[in-house]
Amino acid sequence: MKKLTLNEASNVIGGVGFQWKCKTTGWESGWHLTYGGAAKFAYAHEQKYSGHKTVVFPV
């Protein structure tokens, strides 16, 4: 079985990390290694700014 390079793996699985985006303002976060890490900051953003909605996605 061929070992994939990091670039090849990211093309196959859709990324190697996560970001979150505020759907209210369009602001995008920096890169996060885990979904949980990105989700934690996205939730904190929603708590700080009432009415803002966020989404976490792979990159």
Rank of each mutant, 00 (worst) to 15 (best):
A9D: 10
A9C: 09
A9K: 13
A9P: 04
A9Q: 03
A9E: 14
S10N: 06
S10L: 04
N11V: 07
N11P: 00
N11F: 11
N11E: 11
V12P: 04
V12C: 09
V12Y: 05
V12S: 07
V12Q: 13
I13H: 09
I13K: 03
I13G: 09
G14K: 08
G14W: 05
G14Y: 08
G15Q: 07
G15T: 02
G15M: 05
G15V: 05
G15I: 08
V16I: 09
V16P: 01
G17Y: 00
G17N: 04
G17F: 00
F18C: 01
F18I: 08
F18V: 03
Q19A: 05
Q19M: 07
Q19F: 07
W20D: 00
W20Q: 06
W20M: 04
K21V: 13
K21L: 12
C22R: 01
C22T: 00
K23V: 06
K23L: 15
T24M: 08
T25R: 09
T25P: 07
T25S: 15
T25V: 09
G26K: 03
G26S: 02
G26M: 01
W27T: 10
W27F: 12
W27P: 00
W27K: 14
E28L: 10
E28Y: 02
S29Q: 07
G30P: 01
G30Y: 05
G30N: 13
W31M: 14
W31P: 06
W31S: 03
W31T: 04
H32N: 08
H32Q: 03
H32I: 04
L33N: 09
L33D: 14
L33I: 08
L33W: 05
T34F: 06
T34A: 04
T34K: 14
T34C: 07
Y35I: 07
Y35A: 02
Y35H: 13
Y35P: 01
Y35C: 02
Y35L: 05
G36T: 09
G36E: 07
G36Q: 07
G36L: 06
G36Y: 06
G37M: 12
G37I: 02
G37F: 01
A38Q: 02
A38G: 06
A38E: 02
A38T: 02
A38L: 10
A39M: 14
A39L: 12
A39V: 03
A39F: 11
K40P: 00
K40D: 11
F41E: 13
F41Q: 15
F41P: 01
A42S: 14
Y43W: 10
Y43T: 15
Y43Q: 15
Y43N: 13
Y43F: 11
Y43L: 14
A44N: 12
A44S: 13
H45A: 10
H45E: 08
H45Q: 04
H45F: 05
H45Y: 09
E46T: 08
E46H: 02
E46N: 12
E46V: 00
E46M: 13
Q47H: 05
Q47K: 11
Q47L: 12
Q47M: 12
Q47G: 11
K48P: 02
K48Q: 15
Y49C: 09
Y49D: 03
S50M: 08
S50Q: 10
S50V: 12
G51L: 00
G51P: 00
G51E: 05
G51A: 06
H52A: 11
H52Y: 09
H52N: 10
H52R: 06
K53R: 11
K53T: 09
T54R: 00
T54N: 05
V55T: 14
V55I: 15
V55G: 04
